[in-house]
Amino acid sequence: MSTSEPTLLALDNIGISFGGLRAVDQLNLEVKKGQVVGLIGPNGAGKTTVFNIITGVYKPTDGRVLWKGEAINGLPPYRVAQRGILRTFQTIRLFSGMSVLENVLAGKHLRTRQTWWAGLLSTPAQRREEKQLREECMEILKTLKLDHVANEVATSLAYGIQRRVEMARTLAASPELLILDEPAAGLNDNESAELNKTILDIRDSGVTVLLVEHDMNVVMNVTDHIVVISFGRKIAEGEPESIRNNPDVIEAYLGKDDDEDEQEAFA
Protein backbone atom coordinates (compact mmCIF):
# COMPACT_ATOMS: atom_id res chain seq x y z
CA MET A 1 0.00 0.00 0.00
CA SER A 2 1.44 3.27 -1.03
CA THR A 3 1.96 5.76 1.75
CA SER A 4 1.51 8.72 -0.54
CA GLU A 5 -2.27 8.39 -0.19
CA PRO A 6 -3.90 11.32 1.62
CA THR A 7 -4.49 11.08 5.36
CA LEU A 8 -8.15 10.49 6.17
CA LEU A 9 -8.11 10.42 9.92
CA ALA A 10 -5.52 11.72 12.33
CA LEU A 11 -5.50 11.70 16.11
CA ASP A 12 -3.41 14.61 17.29
CA ASN A 13 -2.13 14.21 20.85
CA ILE A 14 -5.40 12.77 22.09
CA GLY A 15 -5.89 12.28 25.82
CA ILE A 16 -8.86 11.47 28.01
CA SER A 17 -9.30 11.09 31.75
CA PHE A 18 -12.13 9.46 33.67
CA GLY A 19 -12.03 10.84 37.17
CA GLY A 20 -8.38 10.44 38.07
CA LEU A 21 -7.73 7.68 35.58
CA ARG A 22 -5.80 8.56 32.44
CA ALA A 23 -7.33 6.15 29.94
CA VAL A 24 -5.65 7.51 26.82
CA ASP A 25 -2.59 9.74 26.85
CA GLN A 26 -0.80 11.72 24.12
CA LEU A 27 -1.88 9.38 21.41
CA ASN A 28 -1.05 10.14 17.79
CA LEU A 29 -2.42 7.99 15.04
CA GLU A 30 -2.86 8.33 11.32
CA VAL A 31 -5.06 6.44 8.92
CA LYS A 32 -4.44 6.90 5.20
CA LYS A 33 -7.02 6.38 2.53
CA GLY A 34 -7.29 2.78 1.41
CA GLN A 35 -5.38 1.34 4.35
CA VAL A 36 -6.42 -1.31 6.82
CA VAL A 37 -5.01 -0.13 10.14
CA GLY A 38 -4.95 -2.34 13.22
CA LEU A 39 -5.06 -0.97 16.75
CA ILE A 40 -3.88 -3.59 19.20
CA GLY A 41 -2.84 -3.81 22.80
CA PRO A 42 -3.46 -5.77 25.99
CA ASN A 43 -6.87 -5.78 27.67
CA GLY A 44 -7.69 -2.43 29.20
CA ALA A 45 -5.16 -0.60 27.03
CA GLY A 46 -7.79 1.91 25.95
CA LYS A 47 -8.52 0.68 22.44
CA THR A 48 -12.30 0.90 22.61
CA THR A 49 -11.94 4.27 24.34
CA VAL A 50 -10.03 5.52 21.29
CA PHE A 51 -12.88 4.35 19.06
CA ASN A 52 -15.39 6.08 21.30
CA ILE A 53 -13.39 9.30 21.00
CA ILE A 54 -13.19 9.08 17.21
CA THR A 55 -16.92 8.42 16.81
CA GLY A 56 -17.93 11.22 19.18
CA VAL A 57 -19.25 9.00 21.95
CA TYR A 58 -16.62 10.51 24.28
CA LYS A 59 -15.17 13.97 24.08
CA PRO A 60 -11.39 13.91 24.51
CA THR A 61 -9.98 15.86 27.46
CA ASP A 62 -7.27 17.19 25.19
CA GLY A 63 -5.96 16.84 21.67
CA ARG A 64 -7.78 16.89 18.35
CA VAL A 65 -9.42 14.39 16.03
CA LEU A 66 -8.87 15.44 12.45
CA TRP A 67 -10.98 14.17 9.58
CA LYS A 68 -9.49 15.20 6.26
CA GLY A 69 -7.80 18.01 8.14
CA GLU A 70 -10.97 19.25 9.88
CA ALA A 71 -11.27 18.96 13.66
CA ILE A 72 -14.27 16.75 14.51
CA ASN A 73 -13.65 16.15 18.20
CA GLY A 74 -16.60 17.37 20.26
CA LEU A 75 -19.07 16.67 17.47
CA PRO A 76 -21.99 14.44 18.49
CA PRO A 77 -21.88 10.87 17.12
CA TYR A 78 -24.53 11.49 14.46
CA ARG A 79 -22.47 14.29 12.93
CA VAL A 80 -19.40 12.08 12.90
CA ALA A 81 -21.45 9.45 11.09
CA GLN A 82 -22.59 12.07 8.58
CA ARG A 83 -18.95 12.52 7.60
CA GLY A 84 -18.72 8.88 6.61
CA ILE A 85 -17.21 7.36 9.76
CA LEU A 86 -19.18 4.28 10.76
CA ARG A 87 -18.48 1.71 13.44
CA THR A 88 -19.38 -1.64 14.91
CA PHE A 89 -19.34 -2.48 18.60
CA GLN A 90 -17.32 -4.93 20.64
CA THR A 91 -20.52 -5.96 22.40
CA ILE A 92 -22.77 -6.30 19.38
CA ARG A 93 -25.46 -3.64 19.41
CA LEU A 94 -28.19 -4.76 17.05
CA PHE A 95 -31.72 -3.42 17.41
CA SER A 96 -33.43 -6.17 19.31
CA GLY A 97 -36.74 -7.50 18.14
CA MET A 98 -36.18 -6.16 14.64
CA SER A 99 -35.43 -8.22 11.56
CA VAL A 100 -32.00 -8.40 9.92
CA LEU A 101 -33.31 -6.32 7.03
CA GLU A 102 -34.73 -3.67 9.35
CA ASN A 103 -31.38 -3.53 11.12
CA VAL A 104 -29.52 -3.05 7.88
CA LEU A 105 -32.04 -0.39 6.81
CA ALA A 106 -30.81 1.61 9.82
CA GLY A 107 -27.52 1.99 7.98
CA LYS A 108 -29.44 3.61 5.13
CA HIS A 109 -30.67 6.39 7.39
CA LEU A 110 -28.22 8.94 6.00
CA ARG A 111 -28.81 7.76 2.43
CA THR A 112 -32.56 8.28 2.63
CA ARG A 113 -34.26 11.37 1.27
CA GLN A 114 -37.89 10.97 2.42
CA THR A 115 -39.13 13.57 4.88
CA TRP A 116 -41.11 12.60 7.94
CA TRP A 117 -44.33 13.96 6.51
CA ALA A 118 -43.86 12.06 3.27
CA GLY A 119 -43.57 8.95 5.45
CA LEU A 120 -46.75 9.74 7.37
CA LEU A 121 -48.63 10.44 4.14
CA SER A 122 -47.04 7.48 2.36
CA THR A 123 -46.49 9.43 -0.85
CA PRO A 124 -45.73 7.52 -4.06
CA ALA A 125 -42.14 8.83 -4.04
CA GLN A 126 -41.71 7.64 -0.47
CA ARG A 127 -43.03 4.19 -1.33
CA ARG A 128 -40.70 3.97 -4.31
CA GLU A 129 -37.76 4.94 -2.15
CA GLU A 130 -38.68 2.35 0.51
CA LYS A 131 -38.78 -0.34 -2.17
CA GLN A 132 -35.44 0.73 -3.54
CA LEU A 133 -33.82 0.89 -0.09
CA ARG A 134 -34.93 -2.65 0.59
CA GLU A 135 -33.48 -3.85 -2.68
CA GLU A 136 -30.16 -2.16 -1.95
CA CYS A 137 -30.05 -3.68 1.51
CA MET A 138 -30.82 -7.11 0.10
CA GLU A 139 -27.84 -6.68 -2.23
CA ILE A 140 -25.57 -5.95 0.73
CA LEU A 141 -27.01 -8.93 2.60
CA LYS A 142 -26.29 -11.11 -0.43
CA THR A 143 -22.64 -10.07 -0.61
CA LEU A 144 -22.25 -10.94 3.08
CA LYS A 145 -24.20 -14.20 2.58
CA LEU A 146 -26.95 -13.06 4.88
CA ASP A 147 -29.86 -12.88 2.45
CA HIS A 148 -31.35 -16.14 3.73
CA VAL A 149 -31.83 -14.64 7.20
CA ALA A 150 -33.13 -11.25 6.03
CA ASN A 151 -36.48 -11.67 7.76
CA GLU A 152 -35.25 -13.37 10.93
CA VAL A 153 -35.13 -11.46 14.21
CA ALA A 154 -31.51 -10.29 14.22
CA THR A 155 -30.81 -10.78 17.92
CA SER A 156 -32.01 -14.39 17.82
CA LEU A 157 -29.27 -15.45 15.39
CA ALA A 158 -25.92 -17.08 16.13
CA TYR A 159 -23.17 -14.80 17.40
CA GLY A 160 -21.04 -14.95 14.27
CA ILE A 161 -24.01 -14.08 12.09
CA GLN A 162 -24.92 -11.16 14.32
CA ARG A 163 -21.41 -9.76 13.84
CA ARG A 164 -21.89 -9.96 10.09
CA VAL A 165 -25.29 -8.27 10.35
CA GLU A 166 -23.73 -5.42 12.28
CA MET A 167 -21.09 -5.09 9.59
CA ALA A 168 -23.76 -5.12 6.88
CA ARG A 169 -25.55 -2.35 8.76
CA THR A 170 -22.51 -0.10 8.65
CA LEU A 171 -21.80 -0.97 5.01
CA ALA A 172 -25.33 0.10 4.11
CA ALA A 173 -24.28 3.59 5.14
CA SER A 174 -21.56 3.58 2.44
CA PRO A 175 -18.80 4.56 4.88
CA GLU A 176 -15.51 6.12 3.93
CA LEU A 177 -13.92 4.86 7.12
CA LEU A 178 -15.16 1.69 8.74
CA ILE A 179 -14.22 1.15 12.36
CA LEU A 180 -14.46 -2.45 13.55
CA ASP A 181 -14.26 -3.17 17.27
CA GLU A 182 -13.07 -6.76 17.67
CA PRO A 183 -14.86 -8.16 14.62
CA ALA A 184 -13.45 -11.67 15.22
CA ALA A 185 -14.44 -11.95 18.87
CA GLY A 186 -16.54 -15.05 19.41
CA LEU A 187 -16.06 -16.35 15.87
CA ASN A 188 -14.94 -19.90 15.11
CA ASP A 189 -11.95 -20.62 12.84
CA ASN A 190 -14.00 -20.84 9.66
CA GLU A 191 -15.85 -17.66 10.42
CA SER A 192 -12.68 -15.78 11.23
CA ALA A 193 -11.04 -16.94 7.99
CA GLU A 194 -14.10 -15.69 6.17
CA LEU A 195 -13.84 -12.43 8.06
CA ASN A 196 -10.32 -11.92 6.70
CA LYS A 197 -11.64 -12.18 3.20
CA THR A 198 -14.57 -9.88 3.93
CA ILE A 199 -12.32 -7.17 5.35
CA LEU A 200 -10.05 -7.33 2.32
CA ASP A 201 -13.09 -7.17 0.02
CA ILE A 202 -14.29 -4.11 1.88
CA ARG A 203 -10.91 -2.49 1.45
CA ASP A 204 -10.85 -3.34 -2.22
CA SER A 205 -14.22 -1.66 -2.65
CA GLY A 206 -12.54 1.57 -1.57
CA VAL A 207 -13.41 1.70 2.11
CA THR A 208 -10.66 2.48 4.61
CA VAL A 209 -10.70 0.26 7.69
CA LEU A 210 -9.54 0.79 11.27
CA LEU A 211 -9.90 -2.19 13.55
CA VAL A 212 -9.25 -3.38 17.06
CA GLU A 213 -8.63 -7.09 17.22
CA HIS A 214 -7.15 -9.69 19.54
CA ASP A 215 -7.10 -12.46 16.99
CA MET A 216 -3.55 -12.14 15.64
CA ASN A 217 -4.46 -14.33 12.71
CA VAL A 218 -6.78 -11.61 11.52
CA VAL A 219 -4.54 -8.72 12.48
CA MET A 220 -1.43 -10.08 10.77
CA ASN A 221 -3.26 -11.13 7.62
CA VAL A 222 -5.35 -8.10 6.80
CA THR A 223 -3.65 -4.99 8.17
CA ASP A 224 -1.18 -2.77 6.34
CA HIS A 225 -0.19 -0.88 9.43
CA ILE A 226 -0.43 -1.63 13.14
CA VAL A 227 -0.47 0.70 16.13
CA VAL A 228 0.15 -0.85 19.54
CA ILE A 229 -1.03 0.85 22.71
CA SER A 230 -0.63 -0.10 26.32
CA PHE A 231 -2.05 1.77 29.30
CA GLY A 232 -3.39 4.42 26.98
CA ARG A 233 -0.04 5.21 25.36
CA LYS A 234 1.37 4.24 22.00
CA ILE A 235 4.31 1.89 22.43
CA ALA A 236 4.98 0.89 18.83
CA GLU A 237 3.74 1.13 15.29
CA GLY A 238 4.70 -0.20 11.92
CA GLU A 239 4.17 -3.00 9.42
CA PRO A 240 2.77 -6.27 10.75
CA GLU A 241 6.15 -8.02 10.38
CA SER A 242 8.06 -5.47 12.42
CA ILE A 243 5.40 -5.47 15.15
CA ARG A 244 5.52 -9.22 15.46
CA ASN A 245 9.20 -9.04 16.46
CA ASN A 246 9.13 -5.81 18.46
CA PRO A 247 10.45 -6.54 21.99
CA ASP A 248 8.39 -3.74 23.59
CA VAL A 249 5.22 -5.20 22.16
CA ILE A 250 6.06 -8.69 23.33
CA GLU A 251 6.77 -7.38 26.79
CA ALA A 252 3.54 -5.42 26.90
CA TYR A 253 1.61 -8.56 26.06
CA LEU A 254 3.61 -11.18 27.92
CA GLY A 255 5.49 -9.38 30.63
CA LYS A 256 2.86 -7.27 32.27
CA ASP A 257 -0.30 -9.05 31.29
CA ASP A 258 -0.87 -12.64 32.27
CA ASP A 259 -3.94 -13.18 30.18
CA GLU A 260 -3.58 -16.69 28.70
CA ASP A 261 -5.28 -15.82 25.44
CA GLU A 262 -2.80 -13.09 24.67
CA GLN A 263 0.12 -15.44 25.20
CA GLU A 264 -1.37 -17.98 22.88
CA ALA A 265 -2.07 -15.31 20.36
CA PHE A 266 1.62 -14.55 20.06
CA ALA A 267 2.90 -18.07 20.52
Partner: peptide, 16 residues
Protein backbone atom coordinates in the same frame (compact mmCIF):
# COMPACT_ATOMS: atom_id res chain seq x y z
CA UNK B 1 -37.74 2.08 17.01
CA UNK B 2 -33.99 2.35 16.60
CA UNK B 3 -33.91 5.05 19.24
CA UNK B 4 -36.08 2.98 21.52
CA UNK B 5 -34.02 -0.18 21.18
CA UNK B 6 -30.51 1.31 21.24
CA UNK B 7 -30.02 5.05 21.10
CA UNK B 8 -26.22 4.89 20.98
CA UNK B 9 -26.18 2.48 18.04
CA UNK B 10 -28.73 4.66 16.25
CA UNK B 11 -26.71 7.84 16.71
CA UNK B 12 -23.52 6.20 15.44
CA UNK B 13 -25.50 5.43 12.28
CA UNK B 14 -26.26 9.11 11.83
CA UNK B 15 -29.58 9.50 13.66
CA UNK B 16 -29.98 12.90 15.30
Amino acid sequence: RYLKEDELAATTLGVN
